[in-house]
Simulated assay, not measured.
Amino acid sequence: MQEPSYLTTAEGRQLAYHLTPGQGPGVVFLGGFKSDMEGTKALWLEEWAQRTGHAFLRFDYSGHGQSSGAFTDGCIGDWATDARAAIEALTKGPQILVGSSMGGWIALLLARAMPQRVAGLVTIAAAPDFTEDSMWAGFDAAQRATLQTEGQLALPSDYGEPYIITRRLIEEGRENLVLRSSLDLPFPVRFLQGTADKDVDKSVALSLLDHSIGPDMRLVLVDGADHRFSDPDCLALIGASVEEVIARAGQV
């Protein structure tokens, strides 16, 4: 595995990244909750970028992968700040954001904070507002009490060791909710969602489409696809969606 480069942010965090040079608009992959830039989708997109000659950036949020910090110290706002710092420091011009799961939420926050740097958007099982609408809403009274009194709560995960959910993650997440008002997305957008996703229900994708306003938006539901969205057909769909967004960027 190739050693990453590192970016030091204004907050002093060390973000690990891999940057593929190429033509614009560049593509930036935004990973999911407690995932890293070595996942199947990120590496597949890097190979696609090398094959097609497009610039591509993959990186780890603080507390994720090879970046500095503890996962339990972070929250949505921190990771969105990391993503913005990486885009501003490492890319040039408007970018195509590809957000997977939590990365879809991060992408929407970036589209709101720095619209001039976003040329298009592709989300994969996007999980906007999940800290409130999935986690907090799904906690029972005992779990909520534990979170309030102890400051954290352990949740089982299908992807390895339990997730440690902190009180700060939940409370700070409320400051970054995006589905409580309309989302202005004035560029090509493709929302991809599997119908067999056990982590993000397809109703979230429908709600995201309903809340979004833009001239070129499509929601694609893939029958039987799960949250990983990483089988060959799903990866090919991601690539085709990115290519379509690139082709249509600047035309809307």
Rank of each mutant, 00 (worst) to 15 (best):
A111L: 12
R112P: 02
P115Y: 10
A119T: 06
A119Q: 06
L121W: 00
V122P: 01
I124L: 13
A126Y: 11
P128W: 11
D129V: 01
E132H: 11
D133F: 11
M135W: 12
W136I: 03
A142W: 05
Q143F: 06
T146C: 13
T146F: 02
Q148K: 12
Q152H: 15
L153P: 07
L155P: 03
S157W: 08
D158Y: 13
D158A: 15
Y159P: 12
E161Y: 05
I165C: 06
R167S: 13
R167H: 15
R168H: 11
E171C: 01
E175F: 09
N176P: 02
L177K: 11
L179T: 08
L179H: 04
R180F: 06
L183Q: 04
P186L: 00
P188D: 04
V189R: 02
F191G: 00
F191V: 04
D197N: 12
D199I: 14
D199N: 15
S203N: 11
L206E: 13
L206S: 03
L208Y: 01
L208R: 00
H211V: 07
S212Y: 01
S212P: 00
G214F: 06
P215F: 04
M217K: 10
M217E: 00
G224K: 14
A225D: 08
D226W: 05
D226A: 14
H227Q: 07
R228C: 06
F229L: 08
F229D: 03
C234E: 15
